[in-house]
């Protein structure tokens, strides 16, 4: 008998994290104009996917998970995040 779960019931643990690369859903991607980023972090707060990361001196999206919703670009007070169409 082959089992998938080590548990008796329908339980799960973050030790086995669900890793869906939701970046594949994306039809457009955010590109931060690095030099223009004010590091205000508003995109970090508002990114629904929780995928904004801080680099040396700017914020940018983790494109493995970014679904391309455009909220970061929308809330950016510096207009430093461009939405670029993904080419297939």
């Amino acid at each position: 008998m082959k089992f998938m779960s080590k548990f008796e019931g329908p339980w799960s643990t973050p030790k086995e994290p669900l890793d869906i690369k939701t970046g594949e859903w994306r039809s457009q991607r955010p590109v931060t104009k690095r030099e223009k980023c004010r590091q205000c972090g508003w995109c970090f707060i508002f990114c629904p996917a929780g995928c904004i990361e801080e680099k040396a001196h700017y914020f940018t999206a983790d494109l493995d998970y970014c679904k391309g919703c455009g909220v970061c670009s929308n809330v950016c007070p510096a207009k430093a995040i461009m939405m670029i169409r993904e080419e297939i």
Binding site: N74, K79, M83
Partner: peptide, 13 residues
Amino acid sequence: MQQAEKKETISLE
């Protein structure tokens, strides 16, 4: 300039 910057950041969705 502001309009051009805005245009770049407008979501396509």
